[in-house]
Amino acid sequence: MVYGTKGYRFNSCRARQISVVTGELIMQASQQPYPNWQPSPAVDQVGVEERIARLNTRSIKKESKVQALKLALSMIDQTTLEGSDSAGKVKQMCYKALHVHDALPGLPHVAAVCVYPTMVRVAKAELKSSGIHVAAVATAFPSGQADHDTKIQDLRYAISEGADEVDMVISRGAYLRGEYNYVYDEIAEFKSICGDVHLKVILETGELGTLDRVRHASDLALAAGGDFIKTSTGKVQPAATQPVTLVMLEAVRDFHQRTGQKRGMKPAGGIKTAKQAIQYLVIVNETLGPDWLTPDLFRFGASTLTNDILMQLVKESTGVYQSSDYFSQAG
């Protein structure tokens, strides 16, 4: 076991290393460890937090606020990932996704519903050709603590049930042990199984600990072929935070500058209010530009955000603060 410049451990029994910056495999003839001298850039935590604080002072009001809220609504992955999920609950959530608030015409529908693989078929039947995607969590969600074959089976099952998108979890255990190759190979293999099915890679940033690791894991997931990188499962605290989101968006930006490819990003967990959602949109716009302000490249994973956005939209149109009593629940 040796240590790289940033303290990353490299497994000496493996002959190859992956440059997470270029995505190329660095092959090594000998069995000597080959430290990766091109690690992800260091993250300036103080700088990130100050930038977030500054971006949060942006004031988005009136017409722009309405536009931002509608955009945020169209980016939501309406989510239910409970042990108690039933077909009835998923149907109800799909109905909500189709009819977010019929009393206010002209609203976009949400981007997708996000469910466990066993509920994909139910959701597909409800949503039909509405344009709302069905995303399934797979690969031993939420912990990722299963053997490789089980994860593959889980993934194949989700795809065979008809999922349009798959949210996978990385093996944080392996990642934190320093087995980056394993994590990379896993993501790359899952992506090859997915084919055209969109693959979102959940980093579970709450378990990674530092922004440096978030950045490194983001680079790794993007290099391995993840279509989206996603902050959290929603089962671990802290879930999505704005500093983490900024760091991940910067990884997406740098990846785009290097390769020309546009990859997406999805903060999930703990985004409950319309105000937070608008702050996230500001961060996206300032980091990646308006090209990323589309559901194809940015999503919110949330279970209760939808109604708060709707309450704000109705408030903007009526001038009166709203009550959740008058909005249908998602499940």
Binding site: G319, V320, Y321, Q322, S323, S324, D325
Partner: peptide, 8 residues
């Protein structure tokens, strides 16, 4: 007016 109008 705001107090009286609040839906919640």
């Amino acid at each position: 007016s705001q107090i009286a109008g609040h839906m919640d």
